[in-house]
Design a protein around this nucleic acid. Sequence first.
RNA 1: GCUCGGGUGGUGAAAUUGGUAUACACGCCGGACUUAAAAUCCUGUGGACAGAAAUGUCCGUACGGGUUCGAUUCCCGUCCCGAGCACCA
Length: 930
Amino acid sequence: MDYKFNEIEAKWQMYWAENKTFAAKTDPSKPKYYVLDMFPYPSGAGLHVGHPLGYIASDIYSRYKRLQGFNVLHPMGYDAFGLPAEQYAIQTGQHPHKTTIENINRYRSQLDRIGFSFDWDREVRTCDPPYYKWTQWAFLKMFDSWYNTESDSAEPISELVARFEEDGNQKVKAACGDVPVFTASEWNGFSDKEKADILMQYRIAYQGETSVNWCPALGTVLANDEVKEGLSVRGGYPVEQKKMKQWQLRVSAYAGRLLDDLESLEWSDALKEMQRNWIGRSYGAQMVFKVINPDPADGSKFDRTYDMEIFTTRADTVFGVTFMVVAPESDWVEKLTTASQKEAVDEYIRQVKKKTERERIAETKTVTGVFSGSWAVNPFTEEKVPVWIAEYVLAGYGTGAIMAVPAHDSRDYAFAKKFGLKIIPLIEGCDVSEESFDAKEGIMTNSGFLSGMSVKEAIPAAIEEVERRGIGHRTINYRLRDAIFSRQRYWGEPFPICYKDGIATPLPESALPLELPEVDTFKPAGGEPPLARAKNWTYEGYPLEKSTMPGFAGSSAYYLRYMDPHNDKALVSTEADHYWRNVDLYVGGTEHATGHLIYSRFWNKFLYDLGYVCEKEPFKKLVNQGMIQGRSNFVYRVKNTNTFVSCGLKDNYDTTEIHVDVNIVYNDRLDIEAFRKWRPEFEDAEFILEDGEYICGWAIEKMSKSMFNVVNPDNICDTYGADTLRLYEMFLGPVEMSKPWDTKGIDGVHRFLRKFWRLFFGGGEGLEDFTLSDDEATPAELKILHKLIHKVETDIESFSYNTSVSAFMVAVNELGALKCNKRKILEPMIVLLSPFAPHIAEELWQMCGHSESISYAAFPVYHEEYTREDTFDYPVSFNGKTRFKITLSKTVSKGDAEKAVLAAPETAKYLTGPVKKVIVVPGRIINIVV
RNA sequence: GCUCGGGUGGUGAAAUUGGUAUACACGCCGGACUUAAAAUCCUGUGGACAGAAAUGUCCGUACGGGUUCGAUUCCCGUCCCGAGCACCA
């Protein structure tokens, strides 16, 4: 009987759906296991073979855990809000909801073909109002909270108000914006508007004026992780810096916890490192420098002096400060510019503003700057140093001002060289004539009381002195900034915020979800977001916020929603949260390292602070699947002809390289007939062949429509079946590794499944019937089985699925050679294979007489005694070089092995001198040192 | 520039983490079946040298050194590839 994978796969996919085989129920009597995939954005292009890689890996793990008796939660859903649907809508006028639903349906049918064990009853879509109700709810909670840095936790804003009324804000330690100090009576005297403005500075979701990434082409602001090299990640449009009032999330308040808690996670070191870099903690000191503006540009006749605060990690180098620098965007520019320098400074600022972010990055090597006219006083040397304005200092990091130590910082050095500023070396024996000495090592010199100390000693000593003088203090700075939370777009969650007399006011929870209104067209409305087009976009007569939330809003807590997806009273019930807790295994790409994976952790910690969830971290273990790249094929057209020359001969002609659809190429051989039909202009193409075939060239590129290298999993399922696709994707290499898709080896995997099938049908000569024998298994057969159980179990635990597939192939070949058709061997084999190739497993399992799905079977138990070797060929080596083998019992003792080897007749042959040492590693090797 | 990964046959890749390097698969060579092809099955397949042959010897995990009885694995240096960050003071 043939292995008819198409019939088998359709049959079991229907069975699983009808019987809800994979529905997870909250069942405290069973241990839980939560396996999650990063849910996809349903793009118009559909799935290609790269997308399911991670889903297959996690599905194998889910099915394996289920066989081990765990109550497995393995859901799937869609990250359905997003820019592409909106841009498509602007172009075509189609409602993004409509195209999104169409794309989701397409994804669903493609996913169903591959036979995943998802619990579809728990599906979520971020664009569904019952879902985004809880995204909006979380925003309201953040709006209604502040971050107490004493308790290191988010707390309700009402408690903060109570403290203000009682005591003012002097004693409040919070992560907040700039707020003046006020007393209780001052607070109580403030107007509603003044109070609202102050509270806004404390909220975790707050509105603030900052420099943002503004993308004119997309007409929206973007978060830092949505911008790369000055271009938008989506679309690659230029991005500029612009000061705007935007909603933001105070992610920076959580920087320390986000960094520290990484320790407890089972994530790859590479990913943890990426997050560490992104959060960027540096230990240092904040220090005040007196600054004097001798001739203020505002026409005042008097000197102005200020306290300018800077951040440094090298407090030990204060003695080498020869100038100060402030960022061009900083408020200091206005205060420090002197009348005589005003013209030069204005011109410089104008130049800087003109540059796009991209130009600024491209020109990092050109040093620019202008003297402000003001002078600072070095607190340790009392020396006066000039204050400059320069682009290389960033307004957003630290205080936007620095002390410059050209001898020991390469950027300061470049600046000093360009503008002829003094360079004072502080480390004994360092040479700063060509470049700065940046390393934190050596002995201090020229440094007053620090001279003679090592750098490691000098840093804390300098900070101590700073603290003693009361001009600064030890501090920690983070690179992580608050997340910009508003987008000037249509296709996202509306903010549950209205404006009463200009005061941002939250809607009551009962008004949620605040549904997205209809608009006639999705384009921005003049300078305003598309929601400005909505008729009557008000709440109780008050105008509603017109921007929407960014993509990461809906994906930040979706893993919680899966635990209790139909609950309309809470994001997740306490009962469900306490049972499912957090994600045990999360599978997805590295591209979310500094976006979603930071935001989700932040979101979770916030909910944890408020007591809504019981775990500090959302994703315990994380596996990053590699990208599957495309393998493009080329044909070579001889210039100005319609003749195509085979790859091996192309150097003899002047040719143009043309991408050809990989679906009409087989093992780099072009299907000429299909090529002629592919495009009308190739209908009468001529070919110059080699050995009667047209060989195509190839290259590894990103899998994309424009390269004609997209391989659709549906096609693979048609010709080989889903089980082959699943096995093959795993067989390609380790899940974490990026690799090009190459269909070359797929026959081998398919052949393996046929061989496995044949074990049940080819028992005797010419037998076509299903035959299983109930005979006892032989030791040889048991050994094959148990070796495999052990291998598969350890491989699945460590995500080495590729070697598991190899082990299956070996076992099937060995059993085939033994003509083994014994139930006692083959039934456990089916169970072992079922996570990898579930359809064929279900079919054979049923044929074996089981009425229940194989998902409810138990994973076979490994017995070591079946695989233990009785004897072992010990390689006997002399000084590490193998000479012969000796067969000994595997349990032989060290002493016995030594004796046996020395007594062996071959030994004498190879002994060239007296035996110095005999090394025996039991079960491995014997080495004789002579 | 800084930080992480990596470099093993013609190809994708294994190697119980210091113990017989190249499992498994693709490709290729040869063979069986066939009028023929496809499909299927079997055999061989790192390199060099020696031999009629079985077989044997030497060299081989990017390169150069080191530790060790023994190194793909550990240490030092060099080269190359990939990823991330990039004026973060």
